[in-house]
Design a binder for these strands. Structure first.
Lengths: 155, 155
DNA sequence: CACCAAAGTGTTATGATATAACAAAACATA
DNA sequence: TATGTTTTGTTATATCATAACACTTTGGTG
C-alpha cells in the first residue's frame, strides 16, 4: 500500500491494528498487557518511526515517566510477536502494518517528513536470496531501509 | 568477490587499500592525514566490522587514548570519501572494498565469526529502484544488510 | 481455594554509541 | 611570512540500550 494519503482516517488504522494485535496475541497464547498495548498504540498514532525515548515521553502523559527498560521490554515483545519493527538506520520503531503473515519487510523512509512505509517487495526479497545463495551465504535476517523523499513531500 | 579465503595474504589487502585511499584522496584534493590513515588501516586490519570504540582501543596502542570525536571525525571523512562504510544494523564500520567506483553497496554479515562481505549486487539494486519508483519514492540512500552464516562458518 | 511456578513489571544503576562547542595547531597559498 | 581554511585536541554532554534484582500479577494444579 506504501505511503498513505495524509487525509485518511488514522484513528481507524490505530484501532484496527490494536484489534489485530489482540487477536494475534490470543491466538499465539501471548499476553497482550496494558503496557504493551499502550506502546503499540503510541507507535501507531505516530506517522513516523519513534525512538524508544520518544515513546517514553508519550507514556509519561498517563502519570509519571517510566524507566527506559519498560519501553524496551514492551518493544522486544512486540517485535518478537511480529507486531512491530525496528529501523536500524534510525534507531527507531514502527508498528508492523502486516502482522498477519510471516513476512520479510522493507522500508521506505522519508528524510523530509520522517514517515516510513513498510513494503513487501518480492523482487527485492528474491534478489537478496539469490545474491546470498551465490555467495554461499545462509540468510537469517534482512535489513532493507531506503531513505529519500516520499510522494507526499515531492510537491 | 564476497567472503575471502581465510588464508589469503591479508597484509597485502591492507597495504593495497591504503595505497588506493591515498591515490583517491590526492585525486580528489582531500587530505589523507595521519589519523585518517591510521583509522582506515585499523578498519582493514580487522576481519570484521569495528565499533567506533573498538577503533579507539586500537588507536590507543600508539600512545594514549584519544577522545571519541577523533575517531568519529575520521570515520566521517572516510565515509564521505567513499573509503569506508557504516553498518547500521551493528553500529559498526568497515573499509570499503571497492573505493574506485561510485557504488551502492550491500553487505552480508556473519553472525558467527562477525565478518562482513561487501557485495555489489545489481539485481538487488535494480529491485530497490523499481520498488521505490512504483511507490513514487525518490531514493537517496540505501541500507541493505543481510545477516546469517558465511560459507567459512558452515562447516 | 491455596499454592506454586512462570511471566511480567518497577527501579536503580550502568554500559555503549554519538555529537556539540570552542580553542589550538597544521596546512595551503598568496 | 601573513592569511584564511582545514584539521585536531579536549571537555562536556546527549542519546540509545541493557544488567540485575526485588516485587507483583497471572494462570494452572492439587
Amino acid at each position: 500500500m506504501s505511503f498513505p494519503n495524509p487525509r485518511h482516517d488514522h484513528g481507524r488504522c490505530v484501532s484496527g491494528a490494536l484489534k489485530t494485535a489482540e487477536n494475534k496475541s490470543r491466538a499465539l497464547g501471548l499476553r497482550f498487557t496494558k503496557t504493551r498495548r499502550k506502546v503499540l498504540e503510541i507507535l501507531w498514532q505516530s506517522h513516523s518511526p519513534l525512538g524508544a525515548y520518544d515513546i517514553l515521553d508519550r507514556l509519561q502523559e498517563d502519570g509519571r515517566r517510566p524507566a527506559p527498560m519498560v519501553v524496551y521490554r514492551a518493544l522486544d515483545f512486540l517485535m518478537e510477536a511480529g507486531l512491530a519493527h525496528r529501523l536500524s538506520s534510525r534507531n527507531a520503531f514502527i508498528g508492523c502494518s502486516a502482522p498477519d503473515d510471516h513476512h520479510e519487510a522493507q522500508f521506505l523512509i522519508c528524510d523530509q517528513c520522517g514517515s516510513a512505509a513498510e513494503v513487501e517487495a518480492r523482487p527485492i526479497a528474491k534478489a537478496v536470496e539469490e545474491t546470498a545463495a551465490s555467495a554461499g551465504f545462509r540468510v537469517q535476517h534482512r535489513v532493507v531501509e531506503i531513505t529519500g523523499i516520499c510522494p507526499n513531500c515531492q510537491n
